[in-house]
């Protein structure tokens, strides 16, 4: 477990980056708005980054214990099904998926 200074460093870095991302565009709004590159990135980036994060977090979760593969797969299916069939309610999907996983990992 890392030390206090590490956590503080993460927080400070996080604050700097997050605030910069939110604030800088207000200052350079015009060039950003006109930029084709920015527009293209806005279109292309989100789904890819989110997909990478999804697979990465799944992999981290499974790596912790190989016995988690089946619960992870089942819970993933449950989450996807709940989201697509249940009206895209984030809380519901996340809740059901997590609940499925916790139950399977702890009881089975």
């Amino acid at each position: 477990m890392p030390e206090t200074w590490y956590f503080l460093a993460v927080m400070v870095i996080g604050l700097g980056i997050s605030f910069a991302l939110r604030a800088v565009p207000f200052v350079i709004l015009q060039p950003l708005r006109d930029s084709r590159f920015v527009a293209a990135m806005a279109l292309w980036m989100p789904v890819g980054i989110l997909a990478i994060l999804t697979v990465s977090t799944l992999r981290t979760s499974i790596d912790a214990d190989p016995g988690r593969i089946v619960p992870a797969l089942v819970a993933t299916v449950v989450t996807i099904a709940a989201h697509l069939l249940g009206g895209r309610r984030t809380l519901l999907s996340v809740g059901l998926g997590t609940f499925t996983f916790v139950v399977m990992v702890n009881l089975l």
């Binding site: 989110l50 999804t54 977090t57 799944l58 916790v102 399977m104």
Partner: peptide
């Protein structure tokens, strides 16, 4: 055990929405 799956589930839903 297993609460960390909430993060995976969240990203799954976010990816689906995107």
């Amino acid at each position: 055990e297993g609460l960390d799956f909430a993060l995976c589930a969240l990203f799954i839903t976010l990816t689906l929405d995107a």
